[in-house]
Write a protein that binds this DNA or RNA. Structure first.
Lengths: 330, 330
DNA sequence: TTGTAAGCGTTATCAC
DNA sequence: GTGATAACGCTTACAA
């Protein structure tokens, strides 16, 4: 520490914490201290400060799969906003496994992270609610739960699916299938609801608009697409509820030598770097990851700064549809 | 702390640090302590320990772009290995900007991370070398520099490019172009070298095998592909030195209505989730990200545990080629 | 086999 | 305007 300039630690500490004014420290002393601090490029010891104040200036983020570009993007924006606010970010990957997720939360609490942003596995929320009740500031992103009463930032999934379905219908399709992801998880349910309500609203025959599959995976998309096309009157269009599913549909289409959109139309959730560069550029629903991440960080920091923060608001961020050439117009 | 069982902190500390034996503590006392620790689920205060030992049990990882799936994958495996070794991982995104990279290193040092794994921007290494000289354990991944004398784990880029080029040649192509990434960065140079040496070795006319472009970006791939195809005798095959570049080539091919591989053959570095599901499944060179990440963590931890660790070995991990259908056989 | 006490670098409290 | 001093929770000589 810089008391090698004949001043007490106290004074130095006060200056460096911007409390010079409050303690009416002589401006020249203040200058001297600042000067010296820069010269010996002093950096406060965060252990000592943490020990005293129980603040780590660190926040944690937990996602089901870092390698999924959707979450990687989310981590990227989260990290940049946190850093801008002086927080470092430690990451955790739950591998879509609720036990690991729980373990991660425990580890983060041990490390005294000041708050955590979590994209939950989605099959259970009690450990998260407990942590929150015990005072850990936290916000959910993407998957969430209505009953959990936790602050949440997610996409407006219902509306996104509704609009996409509407778009397909308006192009003249009357038999549309939806291949869904993890059943009973919230974003999935909201998307499914948007799909079915659009079908209803336009008076299409629900019997010809099947809902299929279970899982946000390539395999699910692949097998469901094969199966759908094996029906006597196969749907002419598919709404895929995430990017992995649509990749599977693409695989099936190639195998069956189906042209897109000639033989099969496709709209997919999740814009990806490759979406525009596929042989047939794909129409996608793009989630506003920038806004989601930013909002999540804001809410989290609000919680950190206000121990009495009680709101459990759910923010549903609008999405946008990138219309390209994967839907045939009748 | 758990000295509410009539024992001194010392004893408790000793037990919990596994030094019971060394201090010949009575087995029953040891049991009692462990018992109590579990019951009141005691977790040591890492600030206090850190303050005393200057250990954070944290390592940092810095990449040019978290959202790039290649780096996201690398982060994923790094994180899991670090966690297995009791380290938490804090992330930093340098945004391909060397100033931010330097800033991140500074921040990490302030936070007393015990080591850092860094995929450098690649246009300067002095700040990294300095940090290393001043005792920060660190290892480079992906991009590196021969002169920097730093421990490195990367792919065997030379060999990967050589084999890919060889493969194209053996399919009967005599005019092959290479669209490169960031010029003068090491992985790029090694790949370029592999390409040109294969061309030489097989006696192809270098004049008909151009080396083009500068940058690991979609735009670079796109414009270079357009340009190459505008030549009087355009190359029949392209070797793209990363995934963004090949995406750009795909875009150009679609625009020019070129069939792959009918009109243009393509081999790309970097396997991606979509590689196999493109309209023409693409032949790619897959880097062994698992091994790279694992090795990097191992070396880093070796450095952390041995302050005298001096080796600056460069590990070049073998790659594999996924042969699919994007190369035409003459 | 166990305990005492010093010290790690901060900040808060109180005193001058 | 500035300074002593205690305290945060842990590890580790040094004692006993």
């Amino acid at each position: 520490l810089a008391q090698r300039l004949k001043l007490s630690v106290t004074t130095v500490s006060r200056v460096l914490n911007g409390k010079a004014k409050a303690y009416r420290i002589k401006p020249e002393t203040e200058q001297k201290v600042r000067q010296a601090a820069i010269e010996m490029n002093y950096a406060p010891n965060l252990f000592a400060r943490g020990l005293k104040l129980s603040k780590s200036e660190t926040i944690g983020i937990i996602v089901p799969d870092i390698a999924n570009p959707f979450f990687a993007d989310l981590i990227k924006v989260t990290e940049s906003h946190c850093r801008a606010n002086g927080y470092a970010v430690v990451i955790g990957d739950s591998n879509d496994n609720i036990v690991q997720e729980e373990e991660m939360i425990r580890l983060f609490k041990n490390r005294k992270v000041e708050g955590v942003i979590i994209a939950p596995v989605g099959t259970g929320f009690s450990h998260i609610m407990n942590a929150h009740k015990r005072g850990l500031p936290l916000v959910l992103i993407d998957r969430w739960d209505k009953t959990a009463q936790l602050p949440t930032v997610t996409s407006d999934n219902y509306r996104a699916a509704y609009i996409a379905t509407e778009y397909i219908i308006e192009n003249g399709h009357t038999s549309i299938a939806c291949i869904q992801g993890l059943q009973n998880s919230y974003p999935n349910n909201d998307r499914v609801l948007g799909f079915t309500e659009a079908i209803m609203a336009y008076g299409l025959d629900p019997g010809r608009c099947p809902l299929a599959g279970n899982g946000f995976t390539i395999d699910n998309g692949y097998y469901q697409a094969l199966h759908l096309r094996s029906m006597k009157e196969p749907p002419t269009a598919i709404l895929a509820l995430n990017n992995s599913i649509s990749l599977g549909v693409l695989k099936a289409a190639a195998e069956l030598k189906l042209a897109i959109p000639g033989d099969l139309s496709l709209v997919s959730f999740d814009e990806q770097a490759y979406s525009a560069y596929l042989n047939t550029p794909m129409t996608t629903i793009e989630q506003d990851k920038k806004t989601i991440g930013k909002k999540a960080v804001e809410i989290l920091i609000a919680q950190i700064n206000d121990p009495d923060y009680k709101q459990a608001e759910v923010f549903q961020i609008p999405t946008k549809m990138n219309v390209r050439f994967s839907v045939k117009k009748f």
